[in-house]
Computed example of a mutant assay.
Amino acid sequence: MANTKATGDVTETRLLHELVAAGYSVSVPFGDNDPYDLVVDTGGEFVRVQCKTGWLEDGRIRFKTASKTTKNGEVTTTDYDGEIDAFMVRCRDTDAVYWVPVEDAGRKNTYLRIDDAEIDHPSINWASAFEFSGVIV
């Protein structure tokens, strides 16, 4: 990809496709000023989704869970606390798709482990537990 905006557009389009193919009605907010990229109608509620591109790093899929903006030369990092309900992630290296409820994500980064099954620790997020199967949980 040429730049991060293009990469994000590819990810958002892929994730939109996954949701529509699973039978959900999806709305896209107008403009780029909302903290969420998609709003999913589950038939009983509206779910605010932030789309993220993940990448492989040391046996894990990593994605950022904070937004970085520059205004007047000052960089500001903001988390999505209270602004979204879930992250939907496309791993750029494997093209796998994940659904991560905001309460299961970290404040700046989240890691989904894909290897080293010998590790047994309660704080490990196994990628397989978050694979998007077409059902929002």
Rank of each mutant, 00 (worst) to 15 (best):
F30Y: 05
S123M: 13
T77G: 09
V10L: 04
V40Q: 07
V75H: 01
V102K: 15
R90G: 09
S128E: 15
Q50T: 03
K64A: 06
R62G: 02
G31D: 01
K108W: 01
I114E: 13
T78R: 10
E83T: 12
T7P: 00
P122S: 08
A86N: 11
S25G: 09
S123R: 15
T65V: 04
A21E: 08
L19S: 15
A2G: 08
W99F: 15
R14Y: 14
G54V: 11
A66P: 09
Y111C: 10
E74D: 06
P29Y: 00
V89E: 01
I124E: 14
V100H: 08
L56N: 12
S123L: 02
A117P: 14
A2N: 07
H121A: 06
L16S: 05
N109H: 13
P29S: 02
T53M: 09
V102W: 12
E18R: 01
R60Q: 12
G31P: 11
D115E: 14
S128W: 12
T11P: 00
R113H: 09
T69C: 04
F63G: 06
E45P: 00
E83C: 14
D104M: 05
V20L: 04
W126Q: 05
L112C: 09
Q50F: 02
Y24D: 05
H121M: 03
R14S: 15
F130S: 05
A117M: 14
R90E: 15
I61D: 06
H17A: 00
Y98S: 04
P122W: 03
T69W: 01
R62E: 02
